[in-house]
């Protein structure tokens, strides 16, 4: 049984540490907020200008002036603060955020990440992803292991335009966890989802990897 989206989010949450300032991307990464361990203090940054993101508001209590980077209504905490986009990216670019968890289209052995553009299709833009991978201390990518067509997404080299070169530290897919280490060392498969075999992972992966499970 490969991991579900919730399982992947829960696995990503194990990368959190007490005291971390963290930026969570859209999609599965957003779900990571539901798995912060009891008693651990983690501050969520929203790159549109907030530290200390709270949960979604109760119905009828939405505030048009209070949204996250996915443009969803959210709430504040007693410890929250607000700031401009320039200050927000000073935090990100300046290395003050400990961990970024974001989605991906392709990850390569050399730590490259592609997650913003498919040539020939309408491109929506990179938003804050390029800044996050360039500036945050540790970058964790959570993505499906293969395309819907079955084509692998963990590759020797990305063939889509890059979001960042040599930026990925860890990759979590429904099949397992890979240490990428920004391409500085060979890729290592360090965990398998329950019921998944190394052979299955190999058959669905283009990148070379060492097995360390």
């Amino acid at each position: 049984m490969a991991w579900t989206r919730e399982d992947m989010a829960a696995r990503a949450a194990r990368e959190l540490r007490d005291g971390f300032y963290v930026n969570l991307g859209i999609g599965i990464p957003t779900l990571v907020a539901n798995y912060i361990p009891e008693g651990m203090h983690v501050t969520l940054q929203s790159e549109n200008g907030m530290l200390g993101m709270g949960p979604f508001p109760y119905e009828g209590e939405e505030d048009a002036d209070l949204i996250n980077a996915g443009k969803q209504t959210i709430t504040e905490l007693d410890s929250s603060s607000y700031f401009s986009s320039a200050d927000s990216f000073a935090m990100i670019r300046g290395g003050h955020i400990a961990l970024s968890i974001l989605g991906g289209m392709q990850v390569a052995e050399n730590g490259d990440l592609a997650n913003w553009m498919v040539p020939g299709k309408m491109v929506k833009g990179m938003g804050g992803a390029m800044d996050l991978v360039a500036g945050v201390k540790r970058v964790v990518v959570v993505m499906d292991h293969c395309e819907k067509t079955g084509a692998p997404k963990l590759l020797h080299r990305c063939n889509l335009p890059l979001t960042g070169a040599g930026v990925v530290d860890l990759l979590i897919t429904e099949l397992g966890v890979f240490e990428i280490n920004r391409g500085k060392t060979p890729v290592r498969l360090i965990e398998l989802a329950p019921g998944v075999t190394v052979d299955e992972v190999k058959s669905k992966t283009e990148a070379a990897f060492e097995v360390a499970v």
């Binding site: 986009s85 320039a86 927000s88 990216f89 990100i92 670019r93 990179m126 938003g127 800044d131």
Partner: peptide, 24 residues
């Protein structure tokens, strides 16, 4: 990139014609 856009505007308003960033 969002942070580059924000910084380009901040720099422009502060009289800084260019800057270097790792982003991109």
């Amino acid at each position: 990139p969002q942070g580059t856009l924000a910084e380009r505007i901040r720099a422009g308003g502060a009289g800084i014609p260019a800057f270097f960033t790792r982003t991109g």
